[in-house]
Design a protein around this nucleic acid. Structure first.
Length: 165
DNA sequence: GCCAACGTTGGC
DNA sequence: GCCAACGTTGGC
């Protein structure tokens, strides 16, 4: 990583979910429109969840492996990083025997639904927008499931989403 | 500490 | 369903 500052980093993020598994409408209809973002098993994404995402931060909700893959809307962080207890549950698909409850390996946050875009912004469409060349999502081979979005990128995308209303 | 093998992600 | 790209594991 080559970021200069460490303190006030991005207040915008993007999380991926396969809509077959959990979609933005699932979030919108969940109790309190809130869910814990469990099951992330990648260290870089873990660090973001544990250390960087703050209450009130806004998050793009991205549908991966979808038709089309797209940014589907916006959510908000309502609870900051805390241990992902699904790692301790033998019966959970995300069980990880190497995560010790006294020193958890994996973390999660809670997010709440804010808005579902009228028109999801597909990958192809995102690639046509100016100013998004550096966006992590659009980098070749990028698989990071929790990633930062710059304020500039955020504003470009939100402005484009509003135009479609 | 290298690196081949393996498993997963995710666009297409 | 295919497969490229990536992360992790484990033998040495």
């Amino acid at each position: 990583m080559t970021t200069k500052k460490s303190a006030a980093s991005s207040n915008y993020w993007l999380v991926k979910s396969e809509p077959e598994v959990f979609s933005i409408s699932d979030l919108a209809t969940a109790a309190k429109k809130t869910t814990c973002w469990d099951g992330v098993r990648n260290y870089q994404a873990r660090n973001t969840l544990r250390d960087q995402m703050k209450k009130g931060d806004l998050v793009f909700f991205y549908h991966s492996n979808a038709d089309p893959s797209a940014i589907a809307g916006i959510a908000e962080v309502v609870r900051e990083g805390y241990p992902d207890h699904t790692a301790f549950d033998k019966d959970d698909v995300h069980y990880d025997p190497k995560s010790d409850p006294s020193s958890p390996t994996w973390y999660m946050v809670e997010i709440r639904h804010v808005e579902t875009f009228k028109q999801p912004l597909g990958l192809e469409e995102l690639r046509t927008l100016k100013g998004l060349d550096d966006m992590v999502l659009l980098q070749k081979g990028s698989r990071l499931s929790v990633q930062p979005v710059t304020e500039k990128q955020w504003n470009i995308i939100v402005a484009h989403a509003k135009k479609q209303k």
